[in-house]
Design a binder for these strands. Structure first.
Lengths: 129, 129
DNA sequence: TGTTTTGTACTACTTATTTTAATACAGATA
DNA sequence: TATCTGTATTAAAATAAGTAGTACAAAACA
């Protein structure tokens, strides 16, 4: 999977990496058990320090998406915890997003339709209704 | 409306204020045209510097939620722009949340149900399904 | 054995952010 | 006039965040 970094984004590089990997797993681009590139290789590919990639991997590992493998690099976890709900942080974030959507005139139905499309056809969801 | 600041939160104070006001508007706790407390009064109530409150008000004003009223303090805007869609930033954030929900075993149906409840009965939505 | 590759711990540097502070000012109000 | 509003300005301090450099241990392999 290709990691594309936006240099001018206000999202830090290590988070861009982390987010793209999470989305990659959710979208099936990264399969359970699959090896990620070594921190140094990915860093060189992107053109950054390998500790920045390491920070992303550390975060993913801490969140349960990755397991460390000193032999062949980091691996996507085989069995996900399936926490059965959102984390407290994500839950609060979602409440905030719903409030803002509501105030911008997005109906509950439209919002759900948008989310459903994100579930089903990730990558092809247009932003404007 | 009462603004409750979590001192140990990793979200900065001015953002906590801003977020709670946005949610307050969405939930009908703050009505269009309603006056917010003066920056100095709210600051003293919370126990912070009034410029921190001012920063929150500035942000809300910039986002179109508030209008300045030099006579009796800031006021909730009467007519919202109804931007007709999410901002690009919020859209990306939502994509991220959907991915994470998906990986945690939350189905599209469950996710939509949760969002719908957030729309309809804000404040009473439990985090655990 | 030696070499290479892996992740990681530790440290450091730089930059950005957040919060507080002290004033000052202009418009509105009583 | 006196007092209330928001706001502009500037500064300072503290904290946090991001990125990077070096060194090291475990594993793999020729």
């Amino acid at each position: 999977m290709v990691i594309a970094i936006k240099e001018d984004s206000d999202i830090p590089i290590y988070l861009q990496i982390r987010n793209q990997i999470v989305q990659g797993i959710a979208q099936g681009k990264l399969l359970p058990g699959e090896h990620l590139p070594p921190v140094r290789a990915l860093a060189e590919e992107i053109g950054i320090n390998f500790m920045t990639v390491n920070k992303a991997y550390q975060l993913l590992k801490q969140e349960g998406y990755l397991i460390s493998d000193r032999r062949k690099g980091a691996r996507i976890r085989e069995e996900f915890p399936l926490a059965g709900g959102l984390s407290a942080e994500t839950f609060e974030l979602l409440k905030q997003i719903v409030s803002e959507a509501q105030l911008r005139g997005v109906s509950a139905g439209e919002f759900c339709e948008l989310c459903t499309k994100m579930y089903e056809e990730p990558g092809t969801v247009p932003r404007t209704k």
